[in-house]
């Protein structure tokens, strides 16, 4: 029996995002007091370090870089990448939903600004839009 491909839907502020489940390792909630802010690096959008399975991983806040207004960020998605695990600060996790029920659309030309971007497609699920995060662009692009 084949597993149903699922995606994680979540929000940073009011903006919806999604990513494939195989990119997610763990969800950590209520982590505000668990982040070591001494590892803060504004240039890299790193808000601090988080202890995770006997390792220390960087936690990245994309809200500022994306221009999303100040938001309540108290959930970390622990994600994998070629460089290793890292954490992404988000506001709210909506849940896991079948990828087959989502329709991906390229971002219309009129909505594409010049410069760095960490999403190329918008997934529609139940009539609502979720940006498909390109994790490699998220992690490599925080410069």
């Amino acid at each position: 029996m084949e597993a149903i491909a699922r995606r994680l839907l979540f929000r940073i502020g009011t903006v919806g995002f999604c990513l494939d489940l195989n990119e997610l390792i763990e969800i950590r909630e209520k982590i505000a007091d668990q982040i070591d802010a001494r590892q803060f690096d504004q240039q890299l959008s790193i808000v601090g370090a988080l202890s995770f399975r006997r390792t220390i991983i960087p936690v990245i806040n994309l809200a500022d870089k994306l221009g999303i207004p100040s938001v309540d960020l108290d959930v970390v998605l622990v994600l994998n990448s070629q460089e290793g695990n890292w954490g992404l600060l988000v506001s709210q996790v909506e849940g896991f939903f079948p990828a087959s029920e989502m329709i991906d659309h390229p971002i219309p030309r009129l909505l594409m600004a010049e410069g760095w971007r960490c999403f190329e497609h918008i997934a529609l699920y139940a009539g609502k839009p979720y940006l498909r995060l390109d994790l490699s662009a998220c992690y490599a692009g925080v410069d």
Binding site: L66, G67, M112
Partner: peptide, 10 residues
């Protein structure tokens, strides 16, 4: 229809 804002738009 559903209106939503989007980051990094022109």
């Amino acid at each position: 229809g559903f209106c939503a804002t989007l980051p990094l738009i022109p």
